[in-house]
Amino acid sequence: MDVGVFARESDRLDRAVEIGVASGRVVGVSFPAEIPDDAESDHPLLDRVFAYLAGEPDHFDDVEVALTVGTTERRVLEAVRNVPHGETVSLERVVRMAGLDPEESADVETARSALAANPVPLFVPDHRVRDAPGGAAASVAARLRAIESD
Rank of each mutant, 00 (worst) to 15 (best):
F50V: 02
L53C: 07
T72C: 00
V76S: 06
E56N: 04
V29T: 13
V27Y: 05
A117D: 10
R130N: 13
A141L: 03
E87R: 07
L46Q: 14
T72H: 02
A117I: 03
V27S: 14
L115P: 09
Y52H: 13
V49A: 01
A7M: 13
V95C: 03
V80H: 01
F60H: 11
D131W: 04
G134I: 00
M1P: 14
F6E: 04
D14N: 15
S41W: 08
H43Y: 04
V83A: 06
A16C: 05
V17K: 02
H59T: 03
L46D: 11
P32C: 09
G86D: 14
A138N: 04
A142L: 08
E34M: 00
L100K: 13
R81Q: 08
R25E: 15
G28L: 11
R145S: 05
L115Y: 06
S10Y: 05
E78K: 02
D131M: 02
L144Y: 02
V83C: 11
S41L: 02
V124G: 02
L67C: 13
P121Q: 08
V69A: 09
A33I: 04
D42V: 14
A106V: 13
P125H: 07
V63T: 13
R93S: 00
R12M: 14
L91P: 00
H59L: 01
P84H: 10
S23I: 12
P102N: 06
V3E: 15
D47W: 03
R112Q: 07
E73F: 10
L100Y: 15
I19P: 04
H43S: 15
D38M: 05
V49F: 06
V5C: 14
A142I: 04
D37E: 14
G135W: 02
D62F: 02
L100R: 12
D150T: 14
F6L: 13
E40K: 15
L53P: 03
A79Y: 02
D107G: 03
R74K: 12
F31M: 10
R145E: 05
V26D: 13
R81F: 00
S139L: 10
S105A: 09
P125T: 06
D11T: 10
E34A: 04
V129I: 11
R74H: 13
F31R: 01
A7H: 04
V120K: 04
N82K: 00
A114W: 15
F123T: 03
S139P: 07
F31N: 14
G135C: 03
S41E: 13
T110M: 09
A22W: 10
L45S: 12
V27P: 12
A39V: 07
F31Y: 11
V83F: 13
S105L: 05
R93W: 00
F123I: 09
S113I: 08
T68A: 09
D126E: 01
G134H: 09
D131L: 10
L100F: 14
L67E: 07
P119N: 07
A111M: 13
T110G: 08
D14A: 10
L100A: 06
L67V: 12
D62S: 11
V83L: 12
L46R: 10
G28C: 09
D131P: 08
P57F: 03
A142G: 10
G99E: 00
L91W: 10
R96K: 12
D126A: 08
V63C: 05
M1T: 14
